[in-house]
């Protein structure tokens, strides 16, 4: 492919994926309000559009036109930079996530992914691990006690759970033998015993790794039951107490974009990515993988909301004890067992 064409195709892909991601972020908020509403015997948004479907647009307009307050006591450079840091790192990690197979247009193979790097998984982990700066710095630069406590909690919690999160993925890496996300999905092709799909969640005890990953990821994205950085009953709103208008919205965009990244990673690593039954005419066969992938991501987002509607918040010492004394040893045990199984029975 000539370089000019490559650049044009990349720009189109980036624009499309960003559009889809930001729309998905807006509608995940809508979905959350709707689903949690139903779980609590309320309606959720109903006024704007049918089923309240235009609520995200109304919210967006509201955020843009609200007064952008900057309290006089903040440390201004970091106060302004923190929401940007949060949202930039949350959105960037989508760049290496593949959504489907290659499609062929006019003789050129175009992978459904912005860029395919052979350390894709590490890139995602690296970028999301930088996202903590947005939260920590917003807490510190706001110069208020609630924000500071939220920021402190966030940095301690995210660094702690990152270890369990990383270790839970090593089992999958051992089975797949590659860091490339596309390679990991390719390693899950086919079936065993004739009908069970060859997904990593079913293989070599990785179901444990799956639960460690999901739990740690909930803590990484500061979601209930691990949302202590913004625990509204004790810290007002935690690290974003002093923020208003679009800056406040940026923290939410970052949180939901991170949730979508987690859902994408869980689908790719444990549930076979975009694999699923293909049928119908050729054009449908081309689009079905995208649908299967979106379906998995949707299920994970729904579980996120379901958990939010079900579980109460942890106490802080419970959070730390759970992360260090339960999840981390479990992740290490899972890693050792997986390594032993793969070492002793290489074909299994």
């Amino acid at each position: 492919m000539p370089i000019a064409l490559y650049i044009i195709v990349s720009v189109i892909k980036i624009a499309l994926i960003l559009f889809v991601l930001l729309t998905a972020v807006a509608y995940t908020v809508w979905l959350e309000r709707k689903v949690v509403g139903r779980m609590q015997n309320r309606w959720g948004p109903t006024r704007v559009g049918p089923f309240g479907l235009l609520q995200p647009a109304a919210d967006g307009v509201k955020f843009l036109f609200k007064e952008d307050l900057t309290p006089p006591h903040v440390y201004k450079p970091l106060y302004i930079a923190a929401p940007m840091i949060a949202v930039i790192f949350a959105v960037t990690s989508i760049a290496v996530i593949p959504f489907g197979n290659k499609i062929t247009i006019a003789g050129y193979d175009i992978p459904l992914q912005i860029t395919d790097v052979n350390i894709g998984l590490l890139v995602v982990l690296g970028i999301t691990s930088l996202g903590v700066y947005g939260v920590a710095l917003s807490g510190w630069s706001s110069n208020s006690k609630y924000s500071l406590l939220g920021g402190l909690r966030a940095s301690a919690q995210m660094v702690s759970y990152e270890i369990a999160l990383g270790l839970s993925l090593v089992g999958v890496l051992i089975l797949a033998g590659t860091f490339s996300l596309r390679g990991i999905v390719d390693a899950q092709a086919g079936h065993f015993w004739g009908f069970i799909p060859n997904w990593f969640i079913f293989r070599g005890g990785q179901i444990i790794a799956f639960f460690i990953y999901l739990t740690a990821a909930y803590a990484e994205t500061n979601r209930i039951p691990f949302d202590l950085p913004e625990a509204e009953t004790e810290l007002v709103a935690g690290y974003h107490t002093e923020y208003s208008a679009m800056k406040f919205a940026m923290f939410f965009m970052a949180e939901y974009a991170n949730m979508i990244t987690v859902a994408c990673l869980a689908s790719l690593l444990f549930l076979g990515g975009w694999r699923g039954p293909l049928f119908g005419p050729p054009i449908v066969q081309e689009l079905l993988p995208l649908f299967w992938f979106a379906l998995r991501v949707f299920v994970f987002l729904f579980v996120y909301i379901w958990v939010r509607g079900t579980l109460p918040r942890f106490r802080y010492d419970q959070l730390m004890a759970f992360g260090w004394k339960f999840l981390l040893p479990l992740a290490i045990a899972n890693l050792v067992v997986t390594a032993l199984v793969v070492g002793l029975w290489p074909g299994a």
Partner: peptide
């Protein structure tokens, strides 16, 4: 992602 976060912390 980890060591400098602890510094900032």
């Amino acid at each position: 992602g980890a060591i400098m976060v602890l510094f900032v912390f």
